[in-house]
Design a binder for these strands. Structure first.
Lengths: 252, 252
DNA sequence: TGAATAGTGTCTTTAAGACATTATAGT
DNA sequence: ACTATAATGTCTTAAAGACACTATTCA
């Protein structure tokens, strides 16, 4: 169908953000408390309207800065800026997803290194990092309700989709480094994989794998840091974005 | 930001479809000729407005039926219906992508077996299957202009994204069977892979791989068909959706 | 000294890639 | 007989998984 520009149903278009980081060996997502109806007082993913002159990715990047102060990492920049990775996730447009009106939300996925503390946006009462395991209630039985219940709107589904995207994408890309500071050790990178996948990995096979994959890691010169135990070499993310062969998630 | 339902920028939301099939050993996409401005007379991807009470996937499925007569395959149905695979691809919302107004398009990817002939929708002068190689102008030099130039709007980009999605997804999923009729031979499935990837595969290793992957193919009882040469066994798509280990695309 | 982590090496198993060979149809 | 495709088998090589062992720091 061609468009009739004068007669189209009225839509609002928003962006919602699944911002993931690894804190204390757990995969965590940024959630903000809603200050208004509907779902007042419930936790929700950060997000907001797309402005009239704004690109979708631009709107997501703007929201990310407003909520976290994070700049978006330029994939073509050689400098190890402390920016986050940002990509479009999926679009959610069920007619009843917002009780007030027809809202289509273009969800984005952001991966960031561990941050000091979330700064609440102007409109949210508060913001925090919460383990995705808690938010998704994969505990199963008793204590699923432990933190004011489910996320607002369809945000539990959006979060689940974002987490699954992150889990599968670190298999065949170098995206796991987006969870690390500019310089990191092999052990830190391994703990990222373990936190995101929720499994234990063999440190020796992991070391062989990541250092043997061309373009994944480059030595950062500086040779040591501490985490307890023998000092480890520091690395930066290499130029490769696609890993070949890929990292393999155990338990298949 | 919370929404102010009374003050939001006016958006139109559409769905565009990348419908792919394999004909005569070439990956082809469905394109329709535009009957109106802008880009009048140019080829474009089929698509149209999302209606007020309609889900995004529902809108895409409706457009698919209107343009091709194809029903959407129910992934949970055991019956080998002749339906197509449909999934959301990505959303395109550059403020200038439509010169008339702000249009956000939720692109979908559909994979279908070879069809008799495209039926033009009510609003398009005509519709046809065109090799994606031609549409994307990957020929490089001389004869890129051979068919009224580029696609309308940003549809060349959308098509390229859809093709890349299909190419990568048949690696680790059983989606290639969506290009085949309900019953097919190993050779036919191999020619699908060869057409989508544009490479030649070793028939012997391919046969061992697909028949050895659990849940990928199940014998259809009926044991033969012709394509010249010795009769081949007929198979149906098995229950597996994710292939483990995956098919590997050569030339890395 | 003991505990903790880093880094390297070895062996086995799985599976991909490169072939050869036989089987069954049409012409 | 000749050709085309189907189906199975063998050998080699790459890489994952399961370990053992040494190195270097801190408490």
């Amino acid at each position: 169908m061609p468009y009739d520009p004068s007669a189209f149903p009225p839509f609002a278009v928003t962006v919602d953000l699944v911002v993931l980081t690894v804190r204390r060996d757990a995969l965590c997502a940024l959630v903000v408390r809603r200050g208004e109806q509907p779902y007042q007082g419930r936790w929700a993913l950060p997000g907001g309207f797309v402005r009239a002159d704004e690109d979708l990715t631009g709107a997501a990047a703007r929201e990310l800065v407003e909520e976290t102060g994070l700049c978006v990492h330029d994939p073509h920049s050689p400098a190890p800026d402390n920016g986050a990775h940002l990509e479009q996730l999926a679009t959610y447009g069920d007619p009843k997803r917002d009780p007030r009106m027809r809202v289509v939300s273009v969800a984005h996925l952001a991966l960031a290194p561990d941050l000091p503390a979330p700064r609440a946006g102007g409109d949210a009462n508060s913001a925090r990092w919460a383990p995705v395991e808690t938010l998704l209630g994969q505990e199963g039985g008793a204590r699923g309700e432990e933190q004011s219940g489910q996320l607002a709107f369809d945000h539990t589904q959006i979060l689940a989709d974002g987490v699954e995207r992150a889990r599968s994408k670190i298999e065949y890309s170098s995206l796991a480094t987006a969870f690390c500071p500019p310089e990191f050790t092999v052990g830190e990178l391994r703990r990222v994989y373990e936190a995101v996948w929720g499994v234990a990995l063999d440190p020796r096979n992991f070391h062989r794998k990541v250092t043997g994959t061309p373009g994944f890691l480059v030595p950062a010169g500086g040779t040591t840091t501490r985490q307890g135990g023998r000092p480890a070499q520091l690395f930066r993310a290499g130029g490769a974005t696609l890993l070949n062969p890929p990292m393999l998630r155990p338990e298949v």
